[in-house]
């Protein structure tokens, strides 16, 4: 059911009038809420120039973008690279036809998928030693790596299973062995199907770097703390940081959409359910 006009008739004159009334009311309500928020914030002096000045000062912008955004992106990128390796190993392991490989891989993937990233992060942080300078950065990367790796393992499995069965059958028919079928025929096609879902996972990883503030990790949230402690502008800083996250994530979403159109076509983006299916069941 695509195209929303399937759900309702083209409005007649009376309905059109009613809809106009609803539109006006909805506009008034929305604008009212926003205006109230802006008025209250302005009343509290949150729009005063000195609270926002820091964001147009080149030196602080550099701190925000280099120490903040770059560190955040670095953590996310390191985590995603690790997660892809983790995901490939365990995803292929889950597809193995040997039960003694399949079951342990299933267990590992299900465990890391079910444990909150923050819990994992705190444990890793303590395990690496909270006095260490480096440990919070590494704790964030490791926690994001195992969580996203587990999800990528599922994406990979779903991607391989989404390749038409005839492809594997044809490959076996021309005499290829298991490894060759996987490496030469299934994986190259699966990667294409997986790409948009992978980019979506990058968005998740990037968002979750913000959790790093609880383990004192560098990045946008840490820099924002320095800024608001110095300038007493907690709310403007928060708005700017949220804006930065939204901007980067929208760029990634656009990339995912483009990849979807370019490589996958009309098919729906691969979605991986968080509901645990027992090992050995094929989707």
């Amino acid at each position: 059911m695509s195209g929303s006009n399937v759900l309702f008739d083209a409005p007649g004159p009376r309905t059109a009038r009613r809809h106009r009334l609803y539109s006006v009311l909805a506009t008034i309500a929305t604008v009212g809420v926003i205006a109230y928020a802006v008025w209250k914030l302005a009343d509290a002096g949150q729009f005063a120039g000195e609270k926002w000045e820091v964001f147009s000062t080149p030196r602080y912008l550099e701190v925000l973008l280099v120490d903040g955004l770059l560190n955040t992106v670095k953590m996310a990128a390191a985590a995603i690279v690790g997660a892809v390796v983790f995901g490939v190993v365990f995803g292929i392991g889950k597809l193995s036809e040997h039960a003694w490989i399949r079951w342990p891989c299933w267990l590992v993937v299900e465990f890391f998928r079910a444990v909150p990233v923050l819990l994992m992060m705190i444990f890793t942080w303590f395990a690496l030693g909270i006095q260490n300078n480096d440990s919070s950065f590494r704790a964030v990367v490791i926690a994001l790596m195992v969580y996203n790796g587990a999800v990528i393992a599922e994406i990979l499995r779903a991607g391989v299973l989404a390749v038409p069965r005839g492809q594997a059958e044809a490959a076996y028919a021309i005499g290829l062995r298991k490894t060759a079928v996987m490496n030469l025929v299934l994986l190259p096609q699966a990667v294409k199907i997986m790409l948009p879902a992978l980019i979506s996972q990058c968005i998740v990883a990037l968002k979750d770097t913000a959790l790093g503030q609880y383990v004192l990790a560098p990045g946008l949230t840490a820099v924002s703390k320095q800024i608001y402690l110095e300038f007493d502008n907690r709310i403007p800083t928060m708005i700017v940081i949220a804006g930065l996250y939204i901007a980067v994530n929208l760029l990634l979403t656009a990339l995912a959409t483009w990849l979807q159109r370019r490589y996958v076509g009309e098919r729906k983006q691969l979605e991986v359910s968080a509901v645990a299916a027992p090992a050995g069941t094929t989707v």
């Binding site: 109230y36 928020a37 209250k40 914030l41 509290a44 949150q46 968005i203 968002k207 979750d208 770097t209 913000a210 959790l211 503030q213 949230t221 907690r234 709310i235 928060m238 940081i241 949220a242 996250y245 939204i246 994530n249 929208l250 979403t253």
Partner: peptide
């Protein structure tokens, strides 16, 4: 907007911005 904002920041809005409102 909400989907692309980290949850921590949504929490922060309610901890620090909402009281002002």
């Amino acid at each position: 907007c909400v989907r692309n904002t980290p949850l921590v920041i949504v929490f922060a809005f309610f901890a620090f911005l909402a009281p002002v409102l």
